[in-house]
Design a protein around this nucleic acid. Structure first.
Length: 510
RNA sequence: GGGUCCUUAGCUCAAUCGGUAGAGCAGUUGACUUUUAAUCAAUUGGUUCGGGGUUCGAGUCCCCGAGGGCCUACCA
C-alpha cells in the first residue's frame, strides 16, 4: 500500500468531499483508466435479475431442512448497472446496492472473487454515487436477499459530488425542485410519483387511441391567446418582427381541426399562464383537451368517466383512493353524482329564490354565510364566489356540476332547457375542478357576440381567424379539458402541484 | 402583489436568558469474507444565506437585501 504513494500527488484536503473524489479520479486517469466509460452491456435491470432468479429457483428441488443448507448459485450470468447507493465494506467482502430504473439490487463482492489486486486497489476506493456495471451469478444471501456474486465490475461514471444523506434522504424543498435529479436518487416516493405520472399520460393516450381519437400538435406561439381568460406570456418573433403569445389553452386550434374534418382529436400539451404561483398553480402546466364531433357534453361525461376509471384500473389498480389529508376514501366505482349549479347554490345559500335576488341582497347573504366577496364583482361572479368558496371544496366524491351560468363560459352552447345556462359540466373531485366540458358553440354569429362581450374594447384580442373557421361550419361537438398536473395530484395524493412537475418554475438563481 | 415563517458542516438536524457553534450520516485512517440505516476504534470538516447596526460579547436582538415554504390575491 505504501509503495503506491510514490506517484507524486498534491496533498488532499480530506475535509473537502469533492477534493477527495477528484483525487481518486486523477489517480485513475494517471494510470490510464477511463473513469467515464462510453457504454456497458447491461443484460438485466434489478427487477429482471430478481425475477430470473426466482424463476430458476422455482424449478430447483427443495432445500433440506437442516441448518445452514444453501443452494449453489443460479448458473446464468447477469450483467447489471446502476448508481451505488449503499456501500458496505467488511474486510475482504463487501455488500453494495446499486439503483437502476427498476429499483435496487444488491451486489456481493469479495477479494477472491475479483481478479487479483483489483479489490484492494480499486474496488474499495469506489464512492457512494458512482455509477458502476457488474457481472456475476445470482444467489440468495443467508438473510434471503437475491444478490449478484460479482466476478467483474467496471466504474462507468465517477461521481465527484456526494449524495444526500442516505437515511433521511433530501428534504430541503428548494433543493428538491432545483436539483430534482438528487431528489429522484434519494427519495423513492418521488421517483415513484413521476413514474406514475408518466403511466397516467401513457394510459390517457391508450384510452383515447382506443376510441379512435387522433393526437395532433398545434402551435404554442399564438398571435391571439384565446380559449381561456388568463394573462399570456409575450415573446418577440424576430423574423416576422411582431409579438406572439405563448398559448393559454389548446381549444381554438383543436376546433379548427374539427372544421377540417378531424372528428375526434386530442392534444396533450403545455400551456402557459402569466399568473401567480401557488400550491395548485404553476405558470406552465399540462393540459389535455379532447374534441369529439357529433356528440355533446353528455358524450363527454361518458368519456371522462371512462377515462378516469381506465386510469384507476390500469395505473393504480384500484377504484378507491384515500385522500391525503383525511381518512375519507374517494370512490370512482360508484355512480358519479350529477347535480345542477343552481341546485348547489340554492342548497348552500339556503334560499330557493337566490337567483332572483338583487346583487345587494346576495352580498348581504354572503356575509352571513361567512365568505368575503368583492362588492365590485358582477352579479354572476358573486354567485360564482359562493360556488368556489363554499361548494367546490366540499365536492369530494366525483360530481358532475351541470348547467353553468352562460357568463362563465363563452365557448359553449346555450342550454335548451334553461337559456340562462350553458350545456356544460364541471367535474369536481376532491374539492377541486378536474375537468370542464362543453357542448361546443358552433354558431359563428353567437360566438362572435360572446367574444365581443368578453374582450370589450380590446378588439385586437378577437381571434378573427378562428371565427372565419367557424363560418366554414364546425360540426356539433363535445369538448373537454383536463389539467393533467391536478389529475396527478388527485391520483397520487401529492400535496403540491410542484410535486407532480419535474422541474417547477422557480426564480433563477444568480 | 400582501401577510407570515424559514435559511447553521456535503445531507438531516441541535445550540437554554445574548456568553468559546455540536451530533448523526457522508468523508479520512484502521479492524472485519453474508451485511440490511452493518458494527467497532480514531479523526477531518463552519464566511451560522449576504450586507450593515446595537452590545464588552450576536447563530440568537434590530435594519436592508437574496432565496425558499405556507397562507392570501390574480388565474372561466
Amino acid at each position: 500500500m505504501s509503495e503506491n504513494k510514490s506517484t507524486e500527488q498534491a496533498p488532499v484536503d480530506t475535509s473537502d468531499l469533492i477534493a477527495v473524489r477528484r483525487a481518486k479520479l486523477e489517480a485513475l486517469r494517471a494510470e490510464g483508466q477511463d473513469p467515464f466509460r462510453a457504454n456497458w452491456a447491461q443484460t438485466h435491470t434489478s427487477a429482471e435479475a430478481v425475477k430470473s432468479y426466482e424463476a430458476w429457483e422455482a424449478e430447483q428441488p427443495p432445500l433440506p431442512e437442516e441448518e445452514g443448507a444453501h443452494r449453489e448459485d443460479c448458473p446464468d450470468e447477469v450483467s447489471v448497472a446502476g448508481r451505488i447507493v449503499v456501500f458496505r465494506v467488511m474486510g475482504k467482502a463487501s455488500f453494495v446496492k446499486i439503483l437502476d430504473r427498476d429499483g435496487q439490487i444488491q451486489l456481493y463482492v469479495t477479494r477472491d472473487g475479483l481478479p487479483e489486486g483489483i479489490y484492494n486497489t480499486y474496488f474499495k476506493k469506489l464512492d457512494l454515487g458512482d455509477i458502476i456495471g457488474a457481472r456475476g451469478t445470482l444467489f440468495r444471501t443467508k438473510t434471503g436477499e437475491i444478490t449478484v456474486r460479482v466476478s467483474a465490475y467496471a466504474l462507468l461514471a465517477k461521481a465527484l459530488r456526494p449524495l444526500p444523506e442516505k437515511f433521511h434522504g433530501m428534504s430541503d424543498s428548494e433543493q428538491i425542485y432545483r436539483q430534482r435529479y438528487l431528489d429522484l436518487i434519494a427519495n423513492a416516493e418521488s421517483r415513484e410519483r413521476f413514474q406514475t405520472r408518466s403511466k397516467i399520460v401513457k394510459e390517457i393516450r391508450q384510452f383515447l387511441w382506443g376510441r379512435d381519437f387522433t393526437e395532433v400538435e398545434t402551435p404554442c406561439l399564438h398571435g391571439v391567446a384565446g380559449g381561456a381568460a388568463a394573462r399570456p406570456f409575450v415573446t418577440h418573433f424576430n423574423a416576422l418582427d411582431c409579438d406572439f403569445n405563448l398559448r393559454i389553452a389548446l381549444e381554438l386550434h383543436l376546433k379548427r381541426m374539427l372544421v377540417g374534418g378531424f372528428e375526434r382529436v386530442f392534444e396533450l400539451g403545455r400551456v402557459f399562464r402569466n399568473e401567480g404561483l401557488s400550491r395548485r398553480h404553476n405558470p406552465e402546466f399540462t393540459m389535455l383537451e379532447v374534441y369529439q364531433a357529433y356528440t355533446d357534453h353528455r358524450g363527454m361525461m361518458d368519456l371522462i368517466q371512462g377515462l378516469i376509471r381506465h386510469l384507476c384500473e390500469n395505473v393504480l389498480g384500484t377504484f378507491q383512493i384515500k385522500r391525503a389529508d383525511s381518512d375519507e376514501v374517494i370512490d370512482f366505482a360508484a355512480p358519479w353524482r350529477e347535480v345542477t349549479y343552481k341546485e348547489l347554490i340554492i342548497e348552500a345559500a339556503g334560499d330557493a329564490d337566490w337567483f332572483s335576488r338583487s346583487k345587494t341582497d346576495k352580498l348581504a347573504a354572503c356575509e352571513k354565510l361567512g365568505i368575503q366577496v368583492d362588492p365590485e364583482l358582477e352579479d354572476f361572479a358573486v354567485t360564482n364566489d359562493v360556488f368556489e368558496k363554499l361548494i367546490e371544496p366540499k365536492l369530494i366524491q366525483p360530481t358532475f356540476v351541470m348547467n353553468i351560468p352562460k357568463e362563465l363560459c363563452p365557448l359553449a352552447k346555450i342550454s335548451e332547457a334553461d337559456p340562462d345556462t350553458i350545456d356544460v359540466f364541471e367535474l369536481c373531485i376532491n374539492g377541486q375542478e378536474i375537468a370542464p366540458a362543453y357542448s361546443e358553440q358552433n354558431d359563428p354569429d353567437v360566438q362572435r357576440t360572446m367574444f365581443m362581450e368578453q374582450v370589450g374594447d380590446d378588439i385586437q384580442n378577437l381571434d378573427e381567424d378562428f371565427l372565419m373557421a367557424l363560418e366554414h361550419g364546425m360540426p356539433p361537438a363535445g369538448g373537454m379539458g383536463v389539467g393533467i398536473d391536478r389529475l396527478v395530484i388527485l391520483l397520487t395524493g401529492a400535496a403540491n402541484i410542484r410535486d407532480t412537475i419535474l422541474f417547477p418554475s422557480l426564480r433563477p438563481r444568480v
